[in-house]
Design a protein around this nucleic acid. Sequence first.
DNA 1: TTGAAAGCGCTAACAG
DNA 2: CTGTTAGCGCTTTCAA
Lengths: 342, 342
Amino acid sequence: MKRAGIKDVAKEAGVSVSTVSYVLNRTPTETISPETSRRVLEAAKRLNYVPNLNARSLSSRRSNLIGVLIPQTEPGRELVFSNPFYGDLLSSIEYTARQRGYHLLLSGTQEDQSYLSIARNRGVDGIIIIGTYPGENLNELKQMDIPVVLVDSYVKDEYFHTIGIEDKEGAKLATRYLIEKGHRRIAFISGSIRENGVNMKRWQGYCEAMTEAGLPVEEDAIYSGTVDYEYGAIAAHEFVERGRRQSAAFVTADIITMGVIKGLMEQGLRVPRDLSVVSFDDVNLSQMAYPAFTTVHQDIAEKGRQAVLLALDAASRKERRHTECILPLSIVERDSVMEWRE
Amino acid sequence: MKRAGIKDVAKEAGVSVSTVSYVLNRTPTETISPETSRRVLEAAKRLNYVPNLNARSLSSRRSNLIGVLIPQTEPGRELVFSNPFYGDLLSSIEYTARQRGYHLLLSGTQEDQSYLSIARNRGVDGIIIIGTYPGENLNELKQMDIPVVLVDSYVKDEYFHTIGIEDKEGAKLATRYLIEKGHRRIAFISGSIRENGVNMKRWQGYCEAMTEAGLPVEEDAIYSGTVDYEYGAIAAHEFVERGRRQSAAFVTADIITMGVIKGLMEQGLRVPRDLSVVSFDDVNLSQMAYPAFTTVHQDIAEKGRQAVLLALDAASRKERRHTECILPLSIVERDSVMEWRE
DNA sequence: TTGAAAGCGCTAACAG
DNA sequence: CTGTTAGCGCTTTCAA
């Protein structure tokens, strides 16, 4: 059965295509007589009409599509959403977009891939990019005239809207918390520390908190690998090999913490008995784990929600203007930290 | 800067638009002279040309888009991807699609929502639907002529392609495993048991395994709620209230198991000491948890991969034909089960 | 080997 | 209040 188009509806209702288009789109200047409107609606229903959004966006330049790009910052890892942080975030983005009548165009991207094509290609109304670094790919995007929201990115550019958290402050919060609990030797475990990256900020926060407290930042207390479970386990083993010189650790991502705890257990060690840890993110998972993480809480759902709202808002506004949104952070105390006394 | 279109390229290269289209699409009947071809390519690059995929699909009827629908079977839960199973699955779908040059159009759907519109709307080349039940929504899809792949669904209809697992067998595997370990009273903990649903099959498998072993299926050993962490914890509390009459449990989803373990702990009980549990799915998480789950392993990544391949394969084939793909299951032994002796 | 031209299904001036 | 019509950017016959 050939699907009905707008002109079939027009014929069926005995009106012109534009009339159909008008009633279907509830054009602001609602100048259609109720009677006609009713006839059109009925005809549409009778023919089981569903508009072709491709055609619509071709002529109207609006697609009701939001592109979501998730760069694979960890090379070789194809399973991006297995990181629960992305899952939580995506859930929220999807939900918010859907409530607003938008669909999501989802794509992972290799780091060297052009963001431009995917975006321009599909005529998305806005783009949300998660955790990217400065670079050529981003600059390409400026050629276009669609809003780009950077989530968790330290790209400084008026062109992009950003939404993020105070990573450095969060790290200080975490580190100070440990210090207050009496810990003096505190490990720092994170993914790769890259210029202008989130981990770099957290690293700085850690350093500052240590320094403020008059504590040394020691080379052998630093563990830097990839943001995944596997690395956490590796770090835990390394921790033992290095002689267990710290009583606590600030781990910069919950998913890594999962691995750390596991790696420790494999060696008969326990959190927090043998190592206190404060984590970061507060993904849903971190309350489910055992022990439940004491972690720096960020409102991931809100982050996703704001990202969508920012994009849509910018899309509907004519003048472009830079918006920056920083979400609050707090420590949530659970079971992965013990007081320390020499 | 106005983005270059195909006709800009044509002008720049001094050829016609159709010629440009030919060389850009490497039309099978490659009848373009190398010289012309080169000129076009150069012009395209010079103008930084990126094709408008919307326009392309409007005229060619191919969008290189795959729709992924994830029904919210648990009412009220908006955060679908927070269930790590979906995260793992989606990762694999996204990766496979991307390798093949496809993008994903992602949408959760309320159960009462029409699948039809989203699909038809966007002109997707194929649709993957996760875990749906029979119903009107699905039947609507038949009006279209695009391939639909049902993942983990017991909808029996030649029209749809399906990919799934032997849920009943998996449940038997799990239950028998527990029986072999000496358990006689085995709880069954799952999401809602609906007609033709996955949980129904697992329930049947559980019953059969019990019966085969001459064990009674007892009313008070059954826990049925929702597929989420929270329910797991609830079930654990209920388990205690009911008097801890079982020594083991077959839990039908890893995410629920997370909750069960937690709920038990809250009451000072431990897995497997106080309750052995065999879980189901083997999401990435289940090895990370403590204790690591003994669980029925399914190859989630492969499931996602096959779903995409099935869809693409069907899309490229002219005659429609039904394909059904069942992935193998196995038990992976980890730390959540103890032998039981009276 | 290439070009002209007719759409794909819809929107949005502009007329009437 | 409603209809005509010119595209949106691209593919694809059909001719040349």
